[in-house]
């Protein structure tokens, strides 16, 4: 099945002074796939995701997101993406409802639209009792789910998730991935970074990064076959040893 590219990256380089955070990255992400970025802390995942979101300028290379050039059309890109950062960034002193209304508002959604979508969300997540609680009073798992719901509330083409599951227990992680699958079914492309290797199995394709470079890229099955491994853990270890 042919699917168009929604992200195209060619020879992306990002330097901070002498330090090269992203060294000649080349990859593309197809529409409605779950694309995983794997690697240890400091491998350059967050730098790459920030460049794709328009938070950082690349030093050189071509980067197209949702059909727009990151050098020239950052504003267009921003209308078409959602972003969830490592800390499930919600306002702790606002209620769930206020948080969602605020974020929906800055994306320019109409009031009536916000109302219907919010009611749908409350029903889907079963948060009728939580919706008027302050975010600071919620358990971590709920914060994570709500942060994700906020990131896709304006129905972006792509959602970027930067380590969305760090610090969350395995059961909650599983539930979280169910939400991701649901989003993909509605047509959203998911770009996710993680250092949990078991989560790589949930992705359509993964890209393994170390020291700013891409070491391997492909579907989990392809990679397991190529490195003759039973699971992604082994793939990762073999790549690390191969250096």
């Amino acid at each position: 099945m042919y699917r168009e590219n929604i992200i195209e990256v060619e020879n992306l380089v990002k330097k901070f002074g002498d330090f090269t955070a992203n060294d000649n990255l080349c990859f593309e992400v197809k529409k409605s796939e779950i694309f995983g970025f794997l690697g240890a802390n400091g491998a350059g995942k967050t730098t790459a995701i920030k460049i794709l979101c328009g938070l950082l300028f690349p030093t050189s290379g071509k980067v197209m997101v949702a059909g727009y050039d990151v050098y020239k059309k950052r504003h267009e890109i921003r209308k078409n993406i959602g972003y969830m950062s490592q800390g499930f960034s919600l306002y702790e002193d606002l209620t769930v409802k206020e948080n969602i209304e605020f974020y929906a508002g800055i994306y320019g959604l109409k009031r009536s639209e916000i109302k219907t979508r919010f009611e749908d969300l409350v029903q889907k997540l079963g948060i009728d009792e939580l919706k008027n609680k302050f975010v600071r009073d919620l358990p971590l798992g709920w914060k994570q789910k709500i942060a994700f719901s906020v990131a896709i509330f304006h129905k972006p083409q792509i959602v970027f998730l930067d380590e969305p599951t760090s610090g969350v227990d395995p059961i909650t992680r599983r539930q979280f991935w169910d939400l991701i699958y649901e989003a993909v079914e509605s047509g959203i492309t998911v770009f996710v970074t993680t250092h949990y290797l078991d989560e790589a199995e949930y992705c359509d394709r993964v890209c393994i990064m170390a020291e700013g470079r891409i070491d391997a890229i492909g579907t989990p099955d392809e990679l397991k076959a190529r490195f003759q491994s039973k699971n992604m853990d082994e793939v990762f270890v073999k790549i690390a040893r191969g250096k």
């Binding site: 960034s89 994306y107 320019g108």
Partner: peptide
């Protein structure tokens, strides 16, 4: 949250 604001339109 500043990052989220900066990523927004």
């Amino acid at each position: 949250t500043m990052e989220i604001l900066l990523v927004s339109p």
